[in-house]
Design a protein around this nucleic acid. Structure first.
Lengths: 397, 397
DNA sequence: TTGTAGGCGTTATCAG
DNA sequence: CTGATAACGCCTACAA
């Protein structure tokens, strides 16, 4: 509701600012006024005032601690203290203040207090995509813990792109978040951008898809064990020719799943056929494609261990179309225990990741770090044990 | 890195503040010093300084526009303008500033700028639960639109509880979000808390679960049409005794789905049996229970129209257990087109809600409102047309 | 127990 | 085109 005196300066500045059109308009009116020798500039001011009103409109003025202070003939600092339950304020004053605050519908301004205190009580979470079962559950877990501790969460999605990951991190740093919980995107191959976070003194924690060598707290699944157990289960079912539909090697999760697979094969003295160890077979579509190829060759696998439930799903749909019996001819195991695994036909054996729990763990680690009195906290690593959920797609008896 | 002069006042204040223990400690040291008649107070200060360092530690100091200004012997305001691409700044200056900013690893402080500008470039989203297919997809849609426009999103989950909804709104108001996009919780029966948002001059938009009478922009599904079409489809398949597993009447979506169901029955002159119109049958568990009861009675339905895919799923699992043939004896239609519907056996006929698109719509409406020059924007209502996805569970031929 | 003053980092206004 | 200054709302060191 600014009210300008129409000096030449003001007009010049407006002109500079690219509001030339409007300025000229005013100049025009000004000239007209001068022509008619109207001394008073009141009309002009009114006119300009209206324009500002429209241009510069913002939300209605919110009540501040000053308003409360004025109302009670107190000082703003006392009000501030009262609202923060500072022990130095009289009980009666506190109650009075809180009551008035409610009456005036006072909402503390977190930006102002954050600015002053140098922290925002906000937490950033960076994930590939929110509309994926695993990640939305992790976030659910994170929020469950952090909300209780008075933090709110800003989520940045990377869409599996390195650039968007960097972008998201910039946004979060600008928002002065108190910490960043991150799961790297598929395209992310180095951790320079993450080091920047740590350098700025902001807590960084990684989960699921991590850089193991980074000196920050991490929560990961024991992918190796999950794979190993899954493959051993297949072996126990009599499978000997087990193919692996996996993901890229630079992501810890797929690397470790592959390692677990290879280790299990080795333990049982099974041959590793290179054509059966695939690095780009994570989606439903790829699952179908891969199966089409594999089943055309002379030497067909008798089991599939998939690093993703989606490729397992694709594979099963394709196998069904090809009239291949599951699990008799080809047994299938997936990874992630997506909600549909126990509904599909046949129900899919898969590895449960305890996603909500992982979210809770990483959030708890964060809270712990932030509340720790030591300047430097030793990074912790939580390894969540997966659980093999055995279902029809792999159970032969 | 505060450096205190140890006046009596400081100590008294610390004492008031409940830091008594430490204060006494200092007094103790002070006394010792005095005993030994040590005049200089330097040691004491150093000691205190160290304590403050530990107590008051915050993130490392970030570079500000002032630092950049100092570096370039410019004024902070010029730097600010340069970084915001204000037309009043010389090109060379701009480049110089931006370059220096990058060198010094400058991150603009959104809290400060938000405080000054009176808005936060943040958007609040209130939903029942993030780890649900529909809502996580809506958010995906919302973020796709808002991120492009430079907004970031804070998500508040209500867990279907009214209190948490109110709480979440408080949080968002304190964060001075520029708008709130909301889908009401199952327990929310009135809209007083929503009116408060509007009163504070903050943009409120509703989606999916809304209060239709509220004078704000809304994006909803045409639940009536979706239901109507679904039931007509069942009728066309020869079903005459159609039960409805629905939800509470005070939520628009379930109310409208029920209305659509009833309207379709009426149109085709089919009887409405009260025992077949259920208001608390939205979950997998309830789906099973309801079917167990319905199939025990004399007069069994020959079709189920479920307002949720989960109750449809429960029903199907139960029917399969009871060896009832689907769709021959009982046809089933769900609602939401959850990802598992085309995987389960039999695949489930369901109603697609275009959740991502709904998110995009509501975000676009918000952007439109916020960028509109008029103070008062006429609320708009977007009604998304659903699509019936016909699958095995209801297709008799 | 309360008051005073100053500053957090940015931007709007006005002066030059 | 750039500089100086005063807010934005809150908090805290220090004074009283």
């Amino acid at each position: 509701m600014a009210f300008y005196t129409l000096t030449k300066q003001v007009l010049i500045n407006l002109f500079y600012k690219g509001k030339g059109r409007i300025c000229l308009h005013f100049y025009g009116i000004l000239n007209i006024f001068l022509l008619f020798k109207i001394q008073s500039i009141v009309y002009l001011q009114t006119f300009f005032y209206l324009w500002k009103e429209e241009y510069n409109r913002m939300g209605k003025k919110q009540t501040t601690i000053h308003d409360i202070a004025k109302e009670l003939k107190l000082n703003a600092s006392t009000v501030s203290r009262a609202l923060n339950d500072d022990s130095r304020v009289k009980k009666e004053t506190k109650e009075l203040v809180k009551q008035t605050a409610k009456q005036l519908n006072y909402q503390p301004n977190t930006m102002a207090s954050g600015l002053r205190k140098g922290r925002s009580n906000t937490l950033g979470v960076v994930i590939p995509r929110i509309n994926r079962h695993f990640f939305s559950n992790v976030i659910y877990g994170i929020e469950a813990v952090t909300n209780k501790a008075g933090y709110h969460v800003i989520i940045c999605q990377t869409d599996e792109s390195y650039e968007k990951e960097v972008e998201g991190i910039e946004t979060l740093l600008s928002a002065r978040v108190d910490g960043i919980l991150l799961s790297v995107s598929k395209q992310t191959k180095d951790s320079e951008h993450l080091k920047k976070i740590v350098d700025q003194g902001i807590h960084l924690l990684l989960f699921d898809r991590v850089f193991e060598e980074l000196e920050v707290s991490q929560v990961v699944l024991d992918d190796f064990a999950g794979s190993f157990e899954a493959v051993e289960h297949l072996v126990a079912q009599g499978c000997r020719k087990i193919a692996h539909l996996g993901g890229p090697d630079y992501l810890n999760i797929y690397r470790n799943r592959r390692k677990g697979y290879l280790a299990a094969l080795e333990k049982h003295g099974l041959e590793v056929k290179e054509e059966w160890v695939l690095e780009d077979a994570l989606t439903k579509v790829r699952g179908r494609e891969v199966i089409r190829e594999l089943m055309q060759s002379e030497d067909k696998p008798d089991a599939l261990f998939c690093a993703s439930d989606f490729s397992a799903l694709g594979a099963i749909l394709q196998l069904k179309e090809m009239q291949v019996k599951i699990p008799e001819e080809v047994a299938v195991v997936g990874f992630a225990n997506e909600p549909y695994t126990d509904i599909m036909c046949p129900t899919l054996t898969s590895v449960e990741q305890y996603s909500v729990q992982m979210g809770k763990y990483v959030a708890e680690l964060f809270i712990e770090e932030i509340q720790s009195k030591q300047k430097q906290v030793k990074p912790q690593k939580i390894i969540v044990s997966p659980k093999l959920m055995i279902r029809e797609s792999s159970l032969k008896k």
